[in-house]
């Protein structure tokens, strides 16, 4: 449990839209707090890479895709503002540091 796996995320955002900006900052804060040094985040702007979004079937922005560890892939839509359920969904033990 202590050997931290690397959490790999993709965050699809719609340019500088408010929801997307919020998601970026929420995810950043969460990772800093709970996944320090063991996370990777790729931010995909659907306006720049629409075909990628299309291929992935990402239509709601922002969408967070957890690629690893399992259970993966896992998609969470929204600004990622509800912290506790989010941690639970991502399988991050919130009590531990």
């Amino acid at each position: 449990m202590k050997t931290r796996e690397i959490f790999r995320f993709q965050l699809y955002v719609a340019g500088a839209a408010q929801n997307s900006a919020q998601a970026i900052s929420n995810l950043g804060a969460l990772c800093r707090e709970h996944l320090a040094e063991c996370h990777e985040i790729e931010v995909v702007d659907v306006f720049h890479e629409p075909k990628r979004a299309l291929a992935e079937g990402i239509f709601m922005t922002p969408t967070l895709v957890k690629l690893a560890p399992s259970p993966a892939p896992l998609r969470i839509v929204g600004t990622l503002s509800q912290k506790m359920p989010l941690l639970q969904a991502l399988g991050i033990d919130s009590v531990q540091t």
Binding site: Y12, V13, A17, N19, V46, F59, T61, V77, G78
Partner: peptide, 8 residues
């Protein structure tokens, strides 16, 4: 988790 839009 939270709001989203159809931007994508």
């Amino acid at each position: 988790s939270g709001e989203f839009d159809l931007g994508g």
